[in-house]
Design a protein around this nucleic acid. Structure first.
Lengths: 230, 230
DNA sequence: GTGGAACCGTACGGTACGGTACGTAACATT
DNA sequence: AATGTTACGTACCGTACCGTACGGTTCCAC
């Protein structure tokens, strides 16, 4: 019963009606506030001022509602037209920093954390429908965008790597580190600057993957991370 | 009611009896197989051939059982006496690679993944008892061990950094990347070599944080990642 | 105005689970 | 042997939730 609901809302990529969007918004707020346990059909109906019957009519199932919440949220985060930057290492660096900071802000967002917790908590050893949905709608867009940028940098002679996917993953690791899992586990990151973190990470990445001639940003010391940015 | 049980089993760090260990082992197997939903008190009692009354007598609560599972698993993973290595960059590199590979193997383990899923799924916006327990028993030991090694490397003039925690986090990011979250979300990492990944990550780390005189392992290209490791 | 469709609010059935109680068997202690 | 302890197995209770059904209301078409 789970598979059908998830698959249906996955393939029918059409957006939902305004009323349904409002219901999904209420459900997201409820999830952020109280976690999965607070996301009962009754509570969603009460919070959204709709009937349970409508919920089942629109989303088919509780799992269908969860899947709809994921796709709905990802559809909100999308957009952001890629500004095809002018060439040059500074421009590339600035674009990478921008995307990295954006990635950090998205990952640290309350709704994103709540949805990732939901998908992870629901995942089993064999099948993890919501997990795959999160990976596909949440991660893949950023990966394609970053990979395209990396390829462009390589084509321009600014970066040097063989496997784009490997380079992307290293970049991701340098930017995100263990922040995501810590957030998911409930660790609070008090005062923390995504843009500063993105800048440091991108500079480290450029030191690793920058073309030999233009070897990253001067000879900045590696351990120059400011204490207040932690 | 949750807090008391968790806190009790958290502070009384003593190990459990052999029978209780067997019960916890059964519970872990059950969790690995079917996720949190399969971890009902009745199913645990049935799988472990014990009574529900004994469960509640030993662990106080269902949450107490969950907390006990985490501490029990971490107590198993511990051990591994640190071999205080001889000095020199190759020795440091080898030790770092060993710890990194061990970290990867632990994180990718079925039980670890299941417990992290459990703690993350249970985490709420405000309080995440199990999450903190996982962070404290699972992550902190590795962090202290790695940090001590990094400090030793700096004292020996092999590494260069100001903030040990920052260096550790960068190392962690280079080693783990997004592997952990992907695993938690249900992505399957088919054929994947922890030791190879650890070696690449440590070499990248040494290129970033190695002292200037001995700048890491030769001038190995950064993009040398093998395709099949993805 | 009238019929119908969509939807809200609530109530209901069925089920599953957490937690407790009770009877009984095995084992240790004296 | 008598007795107390521990723990197993099962039965039981209360509750919470999913999914459905039903009456009432609003809105639109004609």
């Amino acid at each position: 019963m789970t598979e059908t609901a998830v698959r249906r809302s996955h393939f029918t990529g059409e957006a939902y009606s305004a009323r349904q969007n409002a219901v999904l918004e209420s459900a997201l707020a409820l999830l952020v506030e109280g976690g999965e346990r607070a996301l009962t059909t009754a509570s969603v109906a009460r919070a959204a001022n709709c009937s349970k019957e409508s919920l089942y009519k629109w989303f088919g199932d509780r799992d269908g509602l969860l899947a709809a919440m994921i796709t709905f949220q990802s559809s909100k985060v999308r957009a952001e037209p890629r500004p095809i930057g002018e060439a040059g290492l500074p421009a590339l660096r600035a674009q990478l920093i921008g995307i990295a900071a954006n990635l950090l802000r998205v990952l640290a967002g309350e709704v994103s954390v709540a949805l990732n917790r939901l998908a992870i908590g629901q995942a089993r050893r064999d099948a993890a429908d919501l997990g795959h949905l999160v990976l596909e709608h949440g991660r893949r867009p950023i990966e394609t965008r970053l990979s395209a940028l990396l390829d462009a940098g390589r084509d321009a002679g600014l970066l040097s790597f063989d496997d784009t996917r490997e380079a992307y993953r290293t970049l991701y690791g340098l930017v995100v580190r263990d922040m995501h899992v810590r957030l998911l586990l409930g660790d609070s990151l008090d005062e923390w600057s995504p843009s500063a973190r993105a800048e440091e990470a991108i500079d480290q990445f450029l030191r690793l993957y920058g073309a030999e001639e233009t070897t990253g940003p001067a000879s900045k010391k590696a351990g120059a991370g400011n204490e207040r940015t932690g």
